[in-house]
Simulated scan of single mutants.
Amino acid sequence: MLGHFGGCRRAREGEIEDRGGITDPQLYASQFGVKLGAFRDQGLDVTIENFHAGGSKSAAGAGRRFDRRDSRLPESRHSDAGAGLAFGKFLELATSDKIWQAVAAACLTYVGRTMIDDIDKALDWEGHRLDCALCEHLALSETGGCRLKHACVNERCPGSIERFFERNPDLADGYLSHPHCEVRAIAAKFAKVSLLPSLINDPNEKVQWNAILRLPRSYALQLRKHPRPELRRRVATLLDGEELLSMASDEYYYVRLVVASRIEPILLPQMMNDEEAEVRRVVARRIPNEWLLGMIDDRDASVRLEIAQRLSVQVVSLLQHDPDWRIRYEVASRAPMAQIFSLVHDPHSLVREVASSRIAEDRR
């Protein structure tokens, strides 16, 4: 009796369990290209003769076919999205029953080939095939200092480049001017610090960042006006106090967000009127108490809520007529008893409830 994988229905000693999905073996075979032959497993004869990669016609067209007993696998690329969907379905269900392991094996073999096709070819950053015989570091391969597709400075894979420098940190100095930015960036993590200042003006921000992380803070100050906002944001995380003042008016709000969270609280008043509510919320959480009243009329309710939660019991009632019920709720919860009577008739039930509850408790 033929079984099928992908939905799937299992036939075992006359018992059929329907798992949903495709319930006809022939339909499955035509749609996903898995042909079941015969081998014996718990009373059911099953054999995988071939595997059709490519999924359904709607997903990936005709796809490609190979016999799992044939070592000559077809060339493929992982850009075949339909095949990827079919593989995912195969793997999801194949491992749940021993009877489908043959399908999983065929699938894994093909997927493995599909996904590592390019990795099998050691390529440099320009896409050229590498030849160890032509490498100046050939001698290192004999001592374990490098290995193609694992620890190689000439490969385009960042992990391989990093492993090379981990094994050979003394060689990093010579790669700080390499044409590939990934090599320069990783070399900056291992090279002598005295050589890193030249990388401050590197055209690649990853190279600049790796250099900044190891240089004195004075070098980070030079990048506060860098044209790339993401690098400015990172630089802001390294600075404190007045060093951040010039960045408090940065054109990108996420740079100002970092500044507002790190600058000295006494310097925050200049950011009270920032155009972004997220920035003002951070300001409202950190600004000195004497400045809180200056933000009770903020145009954003979330900012006013931050202020209400920080105001003292004596002055929080100033917000009892706020249009946002969350702020009135804060007032009803904390304001002096004499100032919450009007909130018993508040439009919002939660505000009325907390005000009434406090008044009733006070009268007992």
Results as ranks from 00 to 15, higher is better:
residue 1 M to Q: 03
residue 8 C to M: 14
residue 11 A to R: 05
residue 12 R to N: 01
residue 12 R to C: 01
residue 12 R to M: 01
residue 13 E to I: 05
residue 13 E to G: 09
residue 14 G to T: 03
residue 19 R to E: 05
residue 22 I to G: 00
residue 22 I to V: 10
residue 25 P to V: 02
residue 31 Q to Y: 11
residue 31 Q to R: 12
residue 34 V to Y: 11
residue 34 V to K: 06
residue 34 V to I: 15
residue 35 K to V: 12
residue 38 A to V: 10
residue 43 G to R: 09
residue 44 L to P: 04
residue 45 D to V: 08
residue 45 D to Y: 08
residue 48 I to S: 05
residue 51 F to M: 07
residue 56 S to Y: 04
residue 58 S to P: 03
residue 60 A to W: 02
residue 61 G to H: 06
residue 61 G to M: 07
residue 63 G to S: 03
residue 63 G to F: 03
residue 63 G to L: 02
residue 66 F to C: 00
residue 67 D to A: 03
residue 69 R to H: 12
residue 70 D to W: 06
residue 72 R to V: 05
residue 73 L to R: 04
residue 76 S to K: 00
residue 76 S to M: 05
residue 78 H to I: 13
residue 80 D to I: 06
residue 82 G to S: 03
residue 83 A to F: 05
residue 83 A to W: 05
residue 95 T to P: 01
residue 101 Q to V: 01
residue 104 A to E: 12
residue 104 A to L: 11
residue 107 C to P: 05
residue 107 C to N: 09
residue 111 V to I: 01
residue 112 G to H: 11
residue 113 R to T: 02
residue 114 T to V: 08
residue 115 M to D: 04
residue 124 D to H: 10
residue 125 W to I: 08
residue 126 E to A: 09
residue 126 E to D: 11
residue 127 G to H: 12
residue 130 L to F: 14
residue 131 D to V: 15
residue 135 C to V: 07
residue 136 E to A: 10
residue 136 E to L: 05
residue 136 E to N: 04
residue 141 S to F: 09
residue 143 T to M: 06
residue 146 C to R: 08
residue 147 R to M: 01
residue 147 R to G: 02
residue 149 K to T: 13
residue 152 C to E: 05
residue 154 N to F: 13
residue 156 R to N: 08
residue 157 C to R: 13
residue 163 R to M: 05
residue 167 R to T: 01
residue 171 L to N: 14
residue 174 G to E: 12
residue 186 I to T: 07
residue 189 K to E: 06
residue 192 K to G: 10
residue 193 V to L: 10
residue 196 L to F: 11
residue 198 S to I: 10
residue 201 N to Q: 14
residue 206 K to V: 02
residue 210 N to K: 07
residue 212 I to L: 15
residue 213 L to M: 15
residue 217 R to K: 08
residue 219 Y to F: 04
residue 220 A to N: 13
residue 226 H to R: 10
residue 226 H to A: 09
residue 227 P to C: 03
residue 227 P to A: 01
residue 232 R to M: 15
residue 232 R to A: 14
residue 235 V to L: 11
residue 243 E to A: 15
residue 244 L to G: 04
residue 252 Y to F: 15
residue 255 V to P: 04
residue 261 S to D: 07
residue 262 R to V: 06
residue 262 R to E: 02
residue 263 I to Y: 00
residue 264 E to G: 06
residue 268 L to I: 09
residue 270 Q to R: 14
residue 272 M to A: 08
residue 281 R to E: 13
residue 282 V to D: 00
residue 282 V to E: 01
residue 284 A to C: 07
residue 285 R to W: 12
residue 286 R to A: 12
residue 289 N to T: 12
residue 289 N to E: 15
residue 292 L to N: 03
residue 294 G to D: 14
residue 295 M to C: 15
residue 298 D to P: 09
residue 300 D to R: 00
residue 300 D to V: 04
residue 307 I to W: 00
residue 307 I to A: 02
residue 309 Q to V: 06
residue 309 Q to L: 15
residue 314 Q to P: 00
residue 314 Q to R: 06
residue 316 V to C: 14
residue 319 L to F: 11
residue 320 Q to K: 12
residue 320 Q to F: 14
residue 324 D to P: 01
residue 327 I to V: 11
residue 335 A to D: 04
residue 342 S to P: 00
residue 346 D to M: 01
residue 349 S to E: 08
residue 351 V to E: 02
residue 354 V to Q: 04
residue 361 E to P: 00
residue 362 D to L: 04
